[in-house]
């Protein structure tokens, strides 16, 4: 069986679970919407801080909701894989005449389709709640690229840990690490507004660059980040490097699993 065909079959299997088990997909949709609403509502006044890059809190926190949803959607693939390993289904997959690469790319494609659905829904609800894309279609595109990028990173990390630990110990590490990476960044406020230790950590955290990319089309036109090439290329590099590293980590551990 060719790699492309295997990828298609495994991706279809992943997407079919949305229809067969909607209750499992529901939290993946509800969580980003909830995060967007509560952060934008609680920190409504944050945009009044001088030099805050937008005057709408929903513009700042909609990308955060999407990024959190995409990242956890990505590591969710790790949970599914752990379950498949524990039930023995993964052994059957590994014994089938498919390439090792397709065992990663297939479920990853399914996950990215789910993240696309989630991102679209959150954007629609965000717009209903008052979010405005100041950067037009390019801004929307940047938000989608960031979401897919962070989902790929999360999926690679989740798969790598699932292959390494083969049980639910890996799940706890997946959740905690993604949680820390997301929050120790410019998730809540921009770098210029934060102070102290968090500023130091967030400045070197690649998630900050990915969030910057996600927000380039949502900040005010007067902001330095507004559709700026500086913010876009920094985010793209972070997305590519993180995705390659995490998918490499997954492939390496899959090969070890086979050994």
């Amino acid at each position: 069986m060719t790699t492309t065909r295997s990828v298609g079959i495994l991706a279809t299997r992943s997407v079919r679970t949305i229809r067969r088990l909607p209750s499992a997909f529901f939290p993946a949709l509800a969580m980003p919407i909830f995060n967007m609403v509560v952060f934008a509502g609680t920190f409504f006044a944050i945009t009044q801080i001088p030099n805050f890059p937008t005057d709408r809190s929903i513009n700042w926190y909609m990308p955060l909701g999407i990024m959190m949803g995409a990242a956890f959607g990505g590591v969710g693939l790790g949970f599914t894989t752990i379950r498949d390993i524990e039930t023995g289904f993964y052994d059957r997959l590994r014994m089938s005449p498919t390439s090792r690469l397709s065992l990663i790319l297939g479920p990853l494609t399914g996950t990215l389709i789910r993240v696309l659905l989630m991102t679209t829904l959150v954007i629609v609800i965000g717009i209903v709640l008052g979010a405005r894309f100041t950067g037009g279609l390019l801004g929307v595109l940047c938000l989608y690229i960031s979401a897919l990028g962070i989902a790929t990173t999360g999926a690679g990390w989740g798969l790598g840990l699932a292959f390494k630990f083969k049980d639910m110990r890996g799940a706890a590490i997946m959740q905690l690490s993604i949680f820390l990476v997301m929050f120790l960044s410019s998730a809540q406020v921009p770098l210029e507004v934060m102070s102290g230790w968090l500023h130091t950590v967030a400045r070197i955290n690649p998630a900050t660059n990915i969030l910057r990319l996600a927000r380039v089309g949502l900040v005010n036109e007067s902001s330095a980040d507004y559709l700026s090439w500086n913010a876009i290329w920094g985010g793209l590099v972070a997305v590519v490097v993180m995705s390659v590293l995490c998918l490499g980590f997954a492939l390496r551990n899959l090969q070890k699993l086979s050994d």
Partner: peptide, 12 residues
Amino acid sequence: LGSSSFSRAISL
């Protein structure tokens, strides 16, 4: 996290 993120918010 909040003490670093929202240190400037207290003047709002």
